[in-house]
Nucleic acid binder design. Sequence first.
DNA 1: CTTGTATACATAGTTTTTCTATGTATATTT
DNA 2: AAATATACATAGAAAAACTATGTATACAAG
Lengths: 117, 117
Amino acid sequence: MYLKPMYSKELLKGTLTTIILRLLATHGKMYGYEITQKVKILSGEKILIKEGSLYPALHKLKDEGLVKTETEMVGNRMRKYYSLTEQGGVSTKEKVDELFQFIDTLKVILNVNPKLT
Amino acid sequence: MYLKPMYSKELLKGTLTTIILRLLATHGKMYGYEITQKVKILSGEKILIKEGSLYPALHKLKDEGLVKTETEMVGNRMRKYYSLTEQGGVSTKEKVDELFQFIDTLKVILNVNPKLT
DNA sequence: CTTGTATACATAGTTTTTCTATGTATATTT
DNA sequence: AAATATACATAGAAAAACTATGTATACAAG
């Protein structure tokens, strides 16, 4: 199956955790596979989160107390739902805010009019 | 000396090379220290590029043929000026474009209205 | 006059993040 | 029956930026 090339992987660095947290904030509880698919669809298949990136990131968020889990059986298949803790809700706001501030700063630097500097 | 805290270092990942290239595109030739100071000022001291990040990045860009150098003595002090090669000019446009597309995608994902998904 | 700060380059080794590759297993479609 | 999709997980590699350190000159403060 053909997939449009993803953005330079490097760009995702530092933003994956923020993406996960924000999706959990807007969707309530989600399971891992669901997160990969949601990101794939919302990004027009341009951001493809790999399982080798997602699960370690989720485990880390749990260790840090930002998300909690509940396991559910669907048929014979396990599903592990992730949702924000109270602390995770606070952290999400901070991280999203920081990311947008960073983007604003980036725009200043990248759109420099040399006559003004 | 007190400095406002920098953005989460992770956010810079993947954007440093684009920042360097874009600054060279708008300013012609620049030397390393000048780049760190320009970024510091343009970002309101929120992005502080470390020498341990900058010089390896510049050397890599040179290895890849995206920038070229000329050394100049200012008093007794060496100054190594970096400027874009032709290929570097093309690459700069691509990278800046990719970064802004990534930012647009990121906004879609982070601003999701759950009612619409 | 000497101490600290600024300018200016460079690199070794560490940390962090994401990736590739692999493994297990069930469900559904062809 | 085979291929694809669903669903979790982890080990080890790769990439990027960091910390820490080193060299050296210039200038300001005390």
